[in-house]
């Protein structure tokens, strides 16, 4: 039994133009091991953020369920913390208060001094020392998401859910924060489920990348193993021989699926039983030897 199991999850919404239901995605099954970093890539509207929200317990699946550590996880909880695309910091609270709100809730028996020390530790970890008493309005996008990351890591969740966390951050800052995320994750080793549009970001951070077809009735078509050894950095990762193989493979997939409704009859083919095709360049290399 995997640590986090997304078990045959489907999601349908009532059809806005009349009767019936629109199926966003169907029968998604993902097994994630403890400490694994798994990313989902797909076009807008394929339901990947909905899938993340279902794991977080913020939305309910139409069918199927989430099993975390052998138990069904329904409803939101401190064991699955989300880092939001638009940061979701309370604008009326300072940086410190935003993080402390989560910490106090996660560790209810802690004294005020313990909470303060813990919050300050994570503020220092994301390099925001000195900005404790600033409000989000006074922070840049990158700094805001650092607070979001600090808040998420500070409660030490079993699963970290990243919902396009760097989409609203400028490209230069994005790279810096990605590496900071790697460092934080190296020490904490949370299980991470990320949703993104950014192929390079996915390769840099993930162990496995899941490729989703377009909705409606999107499904997880392929599962790409990122066969680039850790530790990774933005500079070294592109040197690896598999980097562009993986990148090209994913981009080809996304281009193929850019045309609406072209999910049938793809070049790599989809297995008849609905399981995702496993792509592993390491095994390919071994096989050719």
């Amino acid at each position: 039994m995997s640590f986090l199991q997304i078990d045959h999850v489907s999601k349908s919404f009532p059809n806005p133009s009349g009767e019936g239901q629109v199926c966003i995605f169907k029968d998604a099954t993902i097994k994630i091991e403890k400490g694994e970093f798994v990313t989902v890539i797909g076009h807008s509207g394929c339901g990947k953020s909905t899938l993340l929200n279902i794991i977080a317990g913020l939305e309910t699946p139409t069918e199927g369920g989430i099993i975390l550590n052998g138990r069904e996880a329904s409803g939101p909880g401190l064991d699955r913390m989300v880092v939001f695309q638009n940061f979701a910091l309370m604008p009326w609270m300072t940086v410190f208060e935003n993080i402390a709100l989560a910490v106090r809730s996660a560790y209810q028996d802690w004294s005020a001094a313990q909470v303060t020390a813990h919050v300050n530790k994570y503020i220092a970890l994301v390099g925001l020392k000195g900005a404790e008493n600033k409000r989000p309005i006074a922070l840049s996008g990158g700094m805001k998401q650092r607070v979001g990351l600090a808040r998420a890591f500070s409660i030490e969740p079993k699963v970290l859910l990243l919902d396009e966390p760097f989409a609203q951050i400028d490209a230069l800052t994005r790279g810096v924060i990605q590496e900071e995320l790697i460092q934080m994750w190296n020490t904490s080793r949370n299980t991470v489920f990320m949703v993104t549009h950014d192929v390079d970001e996915a390769i840099l951070l993930s162990d496995r990348i899941l490729l989703m077809t377009n909705g409606p009735e999107a499904r997880i078509a392929e599962m790409v193993h990122v066969s680039v050894p850790r530790p990774r950095s933005r500079e070294t990762v592109i040197e690896h021989p598999h980097y562009y193989k993986i990148r090209n493979h994913i981009i080809h997939f996304l281009v193929r699926h850019a045309k609406h409704g072209s999910s049938e009859g793809t070049a790599s083919g989809s297995s008849t039983n609905g399981d995702p095709v496993i792509v592993n360049f390491e095994q390919d290399a071994l096989a050719t030897h």
Partner: peptide
């Protein structure tokens, strides 16, 4: 998102009201 954060960090309804909804 504010309500989502409140739900994830499991704030009591009292805290949810006075720390998130009203402010």
């Amino acid at each position: 998102e504010y309500l989502h954060v409140a739900a994830i960090v499991q704030l009591s309804w009292f805290k949810r009201l006075f720390k998130v909804i009203l402010p």
